[in-house]
Design a protein around this nucleic acid. Structure first.
Length: 486
RNA sequence: GCUGCUAUAGUGUAGUCCGGCCAAUCAUGCGGGCCUUUCACGCCCGCGACUGGGGUUCGAAUCCCCAUAGCAGCACCA
């Protein structure tokens, strides 16, 4: 009884309900194939995906490639790879460049209905008229003339820059962005990589056409589309179509990375970045390369939700999500940064058995054989340090002669090490280790790691007292890893 | 400039629609402690916010107004 009263104060952890979704939804993710997907795309993709999963229905991937200037032929494949990595429940895929005839047909219908006209005014001139809330001469020409001009567009009698199909809206609308916005234009260059065409719809037209044709019921997109939603409503009204339910979430900035595809491309071309998966980039493939799990991205994005406030995406929150996923599965190994070789006097050969995972003994151990010398992290061996414990091995006493340390065996007792507050540090057998480079977003960390790390290629492991890393490459020179997070 | 949207701790978020249970949730971060053969994980304690000002009301994070700030759009991009 009281529970019901206090329910209001519970922390809601699921996304808010969508209206009119009780009987299932049809939603879509509609990227422009100009490059691989980044975190910004992931928000749209994951949010829509989550709602489709919640209510049931179809989830359409729609490739919006109606502007040949903004199409990178390689992006079609990259987008699909990224979606596969995210594990979205896409049920069907359509590509807009393959649907041009559908748009042409609808455009003709719209012209016949008087909802659109073919404008031959100069752009600058039209813009001035628009600002002045004045109709251009083409606006009132008869349907027949519009149809005739439309034919001339299609048969290419008219050339790029000479005509624009406009949607008839309201010239007195207080927002100039709403007034008779464009729907089609001619583009001769560059050629479209997928289709031979010269008449292309603008986003507002093709989106409405497809949302209607595909039966889209709900649209979740960024608030940069709010004005488009308003414009698109005019097209729905002209056709008498049912308008989907819209939700617009706020802008998302990300600390420290560029999200603009064109900026990233520029950086890659200039050699500033190594490629689309350069770990300094916010692309999904960069995150994957660094060992971020797709589920971590999903969880982080869902936690943000669909609020319409502008937010800044925090790496901390993503890392926390990722750690929850990766910590239980990552094997533990020793990595010694800036290694120094130390001979341990008075120590007999020992064999250390260290657990692959402290919380899962069943996973077994790794074996490290001590035969007289060890590699130690140089930074930890400073003159104020007189006793250390090599983890899973034994205690070592350090005596300093000026700045020259001498290492000697000091017993196996863990209790003793604790009593002296000796640091327990990671180490490697002097006779057996492999070179290892860890690449972080800030730079490189050089050191050595256990040979067995070579078997973890492609996986995320934890270097004890260093952090989680993804093993990116293994060769004769050693191991290259990307730093994931601490 | 015009049009519109938004405003809760360092970050994200719940609560705002339908005012009282909110001395404001949860997570992350940070500080401290415990546990531990990792500076990880886990556990405990703590820090930290309703943008400002008016108004309505017995009562405002919640409703109204103004201010301020941020954002978006005003493309033959999506």
């Amino acid at each position: 009884m009281y529970d019901a009263i206090y329910v209001k104060h519970e922390h809601r952890t699921v996304l808010p309900d969508l209206e009119s979704a009780e009987h299932g939804v049809v939603m879509r993710f509609a990227p422009n194939p100009s490059g691989p997907l980044h975190i910004g795309h992931a928000r749209a993709a994951v949010l829509n995906d989550a709602y489709v999963k919640q209510y049931g229905g179809r989830y359409i991937l729609r490739i919006e490639d109606t502007d040949p200037k903004r199409v990178d032929p390689k992006a079609y494949e990259m987008v699909k790879e990224d979606i596969g990595w995210l594990g979205l429940g896409i049920t069907e895929t359509v590509t807009q460049s393959e649907r041009l005839p559908l748009y042409y047909d609808l455009c003709r219908q719209l012209i016949e209905k008087g909802g659109a006209y073919v404008c031959t005014c100069d752009n600058e001139h039209f813009r001035e008229l628009k600002q002045a809330k004045t109709a251009c001469p083409c606006r009132d020409q008869p349907v027949e003339k519009n149809l005739n001009l439309w034919e001339k567009m299609l048969d290419h009698t008219l050339k790029e820059g000479e005509v624009t199909v406009r949607i008839r809206t309201d010239l007195n609308h207080p927002d100039p962005a709403m007034r008779d916005f464009p729907a089609f234009r001619i583009l001769d260059t560059p050629p479209h990589p997928k289709v031979k065409a010269h008449v292309y719809p603008l986003m507002n037209f093709s989106v409405v056409a497809d949302d209607h044709l595909l039966g889209v019921t709900h649209v979740i997109r960024g608030k940069d589309h709010i004005a488009n939603t308003r414009r698109q409503r005019y097209i729905y009204d002209h056709f008498g179509w049912k308008v989907p339910v819209y939700r617009h979430y706020g802008r998302m900035g990300i600390e420290g990375v560029v999200l603009s595809t064109s900026q990233m491309r520029l950086g890659i071309n200039e050699g500033k970045f190594t490629g689309w998966d350069d770990i300094r980039l916010g692309t999904l493939r960069a995150l994957a390369r660094r060992g971020i799990s797709p589920d971590a991205v999903k969880n982080a994005v869902l936690a943000i939700g669909i609020g319409d406030t502008d937010i800044s995406f925090s790496w901390d929150n993503l890392y926390a999500e990722n750690k929850k996923i990766v910590d239980p599965v990552a094997n533990r190994y020793f990595f010694v940064p800036d290694p120094v070789t130390a001979q341990i006097d008075g120590a007999k050969p020992h064999t250390a058995h260290a657990m692959l995972h402290p919380g899962d003994a069943a996973r077994g151990t790794r074996t490290l054989a001590f035969e007289g010398t060890v590699l130690l992290p140089g930074r930890e061996i400073t003159p104020d340090v007189t006793m250390i414990r090599l983890k899973d091995l034994f205690n070592v006493k350090i005596t300093w002669n000026g700045s020259i340390p001498t290492f000697s065996y000091a017993g196996d007792s863990l209790a003793e090490a604790r009593a002296t507050k000796a640091h327990i540090i990671q180490w490697l057998p002097g006779q057996e280790s492999v070179h290892c480079t860890i690449l972080t977003q800030e730079g490189e960390m050089s050191g050595a790691c256990e040979p067995r790390v070579k078997e973890e290629l492609g996986k995320v492991v934890q270097f004890e007292r260093v952090g989680f890393v993804k093993i990116d490459a293994v060769d004769n020179d050693g191991v290259r890893a990307y730093f994931t997070h601490t």
